[in-house]
Amino acid sequence: MFDLDIPFFPEQASTIAVLTDVFTFGVIGLGLIIGIIVVILMISFVVRYNHDTTADRTNPVDEHTTLELTWSFIPLVLVLSIFVWSANIYYNLYNPPSNAINMYVIGKQWMWKIQHPDGQREVNTLHMPVNQPIKLTMTSEDVIHSFYVPAFRIKQDVLPGRFTVMWFEATQTGEHLLLCAEFCGTEHSFMVGKVIVMEPDEYEKWLREGQTALGANAAAPAGQTISGDALFTQKGCVTCHKIDGTQGLGPNLKAVGTQVELDTGDKVDYNEEYMRESMINPQAKIAKGFSNIMPTYQGQLSEEEIILLIEYVKLLNGGK
């Protein structure tokens, strides 16, 4: 009835997994040392000072400020050291290396839709190359989900209405569980997929063959029906946002740098989140020198279309 290989420890399949494990078991170990000392003391007191023993009970103490300060100060130093260690790992988790490949993830009740940089799409599987940082730009079409790969020790909530970002670098080829960790309704426990880590050349091959050649991806929707540039014309973006170098009513999307100066004088990063916000909530951040005339595209663009447009605009800027 039971599998006799009792699992004690999850596979370590990413660069971060080792760091997380060493950290976690380091903290547990430290805690256990203190905890076990306390328990041993407690048991020895219970035995030694049991009411029917004749142990020495002279000069009992019920106050000792130095002792109190010592056992307040030592744990404080310990937890502050733990904090520095933890913060260091956590900060890196949210700062993807510049050579990371960007992929998009859309969560919806109850599936994961993934889009590769070249436009290939798949559902509930994510093919990726080994030893290559991958950055995921994620959003949800409905409720909050959470993208969780236990073998990588990473997790990030996926929110409707905005992008969240995570990154990881796999160190082992093979299949790893992909789970939704945030309760998202009836079929929450079936919002499960696989991350398939491949050798780089195999991944290239997989990309070229496209999902139709791979039986495992037959469930994926048919290849993209409309391209980003067609969408750019069809949705009327091109009316104001000229791409031929002339100046329109809106900013020229071809000549955007890495930062955008706003009419408030602030500067914001010109990234996926800003582009997304500018389509859904264009009044939020107005580029300097332009007036607040763009209508919202909320409800008129699906999350997939938004991603196509972002990728198209990035292409105009040399793929950045």
Binding site: L19, T20, F23, T24, V27, I28, G31, L32, G35, V79, I82, F83, W85, S86, A87, N88, I89, Y90, L93, S146, Y148, P150, R153, I154, K155, A181, E182, F183
Partner: peptide, 18 residues
């Protein structure tokens, strides 16, 4: 308490949350 300190650590919580 010990596992509380583990979960208060961002590095471990990213894996263990939920």
């Amino acid at each position: 308490g010990i596992t509380g300190v583990v979960l208060a650590s961002m590095a471990a919580d990213v894996h263990l949350h939920d």
